[in-house]
């Protein structure tokens, strides 16, 4: 590629960066600036500059810290399960199995429905639905109302999130698997590699780009989860499942503490950014190009 061609680079990259800056970067920087004031978020009302006070308060806000910890736990669970399930199904539907197309569609369908509605449906299942099943089967140690128990409510959230996004992750892995040239697989099989060996030494390294992408996308989406959180548990019971985005939303829109909410958001963003960007650079190094 002719490296001196600034014209081409600008043409290819410019429009995207422009629109992106206006829509994402400018509001983000505005938001950061607002974290240094005491304000209720209403344009017509006064802002009072208070420096780092919001940040100091945030670091001693036990409810915020609990919500951040819960979010990390949720993310860990959701990311592991979603990627495992998505990868397994992707491998299955790209194998020689029958009805692969149908299975692929079925696994993907939950993703077609927005998180808000899904949350309501699953809310019913975990509360009333489980009660009915518990009465019928008598297995009350599994089939009770999960949403009334702080730990199980979080499990429920992980479960629903996995159910919804496994299909989306499956699509990404399928794309990755498709880029492996068939002759490479056949050559490896001729050399005696099968099953697990074939997967771990040949297939997996070649789909590492898909893995990086999928890992990062599930990580970022899990940290940001809101819709499903709102409709499935509404943060309950007793704020036990109030995850990070909900804590911020409540602070800004219900409590009316805009600057404080923004400070919390910036803090969390910094922590999460360090964590996930480290992940991206590690896995990118392990990618194999052709």
């Amino acid at each position: 590629m002719k490296r001196k061609d600034w014209y081409w680079n600008l043409l290819f990259v410019g429009p995207t960066v422009c629109i992106f800056s206006l829509v994402v970067l400018v509001p983000f920087v505005m938001g950061i600036s607002y974290s240094f004031v005491s304000w209720d978020g209403i344009a017509a009302n006064a802002k009072r500059f208070i420096g780092f006070t919001n940040y100091v308060s945030a670091m001693s806000d036990t409810r915020f810290i609990r919500s951040a910890v819960k979010t990390f736990i949720f993310t860990a669970g959701a990311v592991v399960l979603t990627n495992a399930l998505g990868l397994i199904v992707a491998l299955l539907v790209t194998s020689k199995m029958k009805l692969a197309g149908v299975v692929r569609t079925f696994y993907f369908m939950p993703y077609l429905i927005g998180g808000l509605i899904l949350g309501y449906i699953w809310k019913f299942i975990f509360s009333d639905g489980f009660a009915i099943i518990g009465n019928v089967t008598g297995w009350k140690f599994i089939f009770f109302n999960w949403l009334l128990n702080p730990t199980f409510a979080l499990f429920a959230l992980i479960f629903v999130s996995t159910w919804q996004t496994a299909g989306y992750v499956m699509i990404i892995y399928i794309s990755g698997i498709q880029t492996i040239p068939q002759d490479l697989i056949e050559a490896a099989e001729v050399d005696g590699a099968h099953g697990w060996k074939l997967f771990w030494h040949i297939k997996f390294p070649l789909i590492m780009p898909a893995f990086t992408i999928s890992l990062f996308m599930t990580l970022s989406n899990s940290f940001k989860i809101f819709d499903t959180n709102l409709s499935l548990t509404a943060g309950g019971p007793s704020n036990a499942t109030e995850l990070f985005a909900m804590n911020i939303y409540n602070e800004i829109f219900l409590n009316g503490n805009y600057g404080y909410g923004q400070a919390k958001a910036v803090l969390f963003f910094i922590i999460v950014a360090i964590f996930t960007l480290a992940q991206v650079s590690i896995t990118k190094k392990r990618e194999v190009g052709l």
Partner: peptide
């Protein structure tokens, strides 16, 4: 205080029943 019913009171009331 604005939003208190949804962000604070309902959580406390829930804990009474659990």
């Amino acid at each position: 205080p604005s939003g208190i019913a949804d962000t604070y009171l309902v959580g406390t009331a829930q804990s009474f029943f659990t």
